[in-house]
Simulated assay, not measured.
Amino acid sequence: MQYRRLGKTGYDVSTISFGAWAIGGTWGEVNDEESMAALHRALDLGITLFDTADVYGDGHSERLIARLRRERPEPFYVATKAGRRLNPHEAAGYNRQNLRSFIERSLKNLEVDALDLLQLHCPPTELYRQPEVFGVLDDFVQEGLLRSYGVSVELVDEALEAIRHEGVATVQIIFNAFRLKPADAFFAAARAADVGILARVPLASGLLTGKLRADTPFEQGDHRAFNRHGEAFDKGETFSGVDYETGLEAVERLRPLVPAGQTLAGFALRWILMFPEVTCAIPGARNPAQVEANAAAADLPELTAEQMVAVQQVYDELIRAQVHGHW
Rank of each mutant, 00 (worst) to 15 (best):
L120F: 04
C280F: 03
T80V: 13
R147F: 11
T216C: 02
N31I: 07
R105A: 14
E126G: 09
T209Q: 11
D32G: 01
E62M: 06
P301L: 08
G150V: 13
P73D: 04
W21I: 02
L118R: 10
T26Q: 12
F226V: 11
Y315L: 00
P124D: 00
G261M: 14
A169W: 12
V78T: 15
G150F: 11
E237M: 10
T125N: 07
Q119K: 15
G25H: 14
G46N: 03
D234L: 14
F226A: 02
K8F: 00
D184G: 06
I282S: 01
V133K: 14
V136N: 01
C122T: 15
A190K: 05
V201C: 02
V136D: 01
S106Y: 05
I197G: 00
R5P: 04
R255S: 06
L155N: 13
E249S: 06
V13Q: 05
G241P: 06
I272N: 04
H326W: 13
P202G: 05
S152N: 14
G167V: 12
R84K: 14
A185V: 13
I103P: 03
I272R: 02
I173C: 05
V258G: 09
T48Y: 02
D316N: 15
E154K: 10
V151A: 09
V151N: 08
L39P: 00
W27A: 08
V291S: 00
V171N: 04
M274Q: 15
D243C: 04
D184N: 08
L49N: 12
T26Y: 08
E132S: 13
A268P: 11
I65K: 07
N176Q: 08
N109C: 07
S61H: 11
A38N: 07
T246I: 15
R213M: 08
I163V: 15
D299F: 04
H121Y: 09
S106T: 03
S240L: 04
Q313Y: 00
L254T: 07
D44F: 00
F178S: 00
K235A: 13
S61W: 11
E111K: 10
A193T: 08
Q312I: 05
G206H: 09
D299Y: 04
V141W: 05
N176M: 02
P301G: 10
N98M: 12
E104Q: 15
V156S: 05
T9F: 10
V242A: 01
L212G: 03
H40I: 03
L107W: 09
D32M: 00
G135K: 15
A188H: 05
E306A: 15
P202D: 06
K8D: 01
P217S: 06
L264E: 08
I272Q: 02
N294A: 11
A214E: 13
Y77D: 02
L115T: 07
L198N: 08
K108H: 05
D54C: 08
K181M: 11
N87T: 14
L110K: 07
R213E: 10
R100N: 03
A169L: 14
I282H: 02
Q172L: 12
F275S: 03
L254Q: 06
I23T: 04
R41W: 00
E62Q: 10
L110T: 09
A91L: 08
T304Y: 04
Y56Q: 08
Y94G: 02
P88K: 14
L39A: 01
